[in-house]
Amino acid sequence: MMAFTPLEQAAIAAILDESGERRVVVEQQLTRSSVLSRKNTGGGFFAELKVDSSASRLNEGTIPFGENIYFGIYGLQYGLGMILHLKGGYVNLLEGYSVGGEDTSAIDFARIRFALIAEPGPLPTSGS
């Protein structure tokens, strides 16, 4: 199993900030999770997550997190949106999707420059 990349860590931190009252359970699950696999889909990426079975379960089941989480990404005009998916009350997938439908197949998401942004757009000049 793999550790989270800097982009994944930043996305998770931003998603936790908007999780409201469910933050405690989601944060507990994420601290007891690791990445099983990653895939650059050409339209973003998927990071499949494995949560320790001792973590508390959310009652919501499959309601995703990350409605307004965007990152400026070096080489993308509109950046990525981020969504944390759940299955059966547990986080199971972090999705980064190309907001403008741009091709991401050449991007190495583990090493890319990025910055959290308020709305879809390019990487600010002071990005990570």
Rank of each mutant, 00 (worst) to 15 (best):
A11R: 06
L76T: 01
S128D: 10
S98E: 05
G42D: 08
V99D: 03
E18P: 00
A14D: 02
Y74W: 06
L58I: 06
T31I: 09
F4R: 10
E119F: 08
D103H: 05
G127N: 04
E67S: 15
T104E: 06
I112V: 15
I112W: 00
Q28L: 05
A14I: 00
S126D: 14
L16V: 07
S98I: 07
A55V: 05
V24W: 10
Y97D: 12
F109P: 05
Y74Q: 15
L116N: 06
I12V: 12
R23V: 09
P6V: 08
A55E: 07
G101I: 02
G61Q: 01
V99Y: 12
L116S: 03
L84V: 00
Q29G: 09
K39T: 15
G89W: 05
T5P: 07
L7N: 04
H85R: 14
D52S: 09
L30F: 08
L36W: 06
S33L: 06
A110N: 14
P120D: 05
G121D: 12
R113V: 00
N68E: 14
N59F: 08
K39W: 07
T5A: 13
V91W: 05
V26Y: 02
G88W: 01
F114Y: 14
A110W: 07
A3M: 09
G43T: 06
I12L: 14
G88H: 08
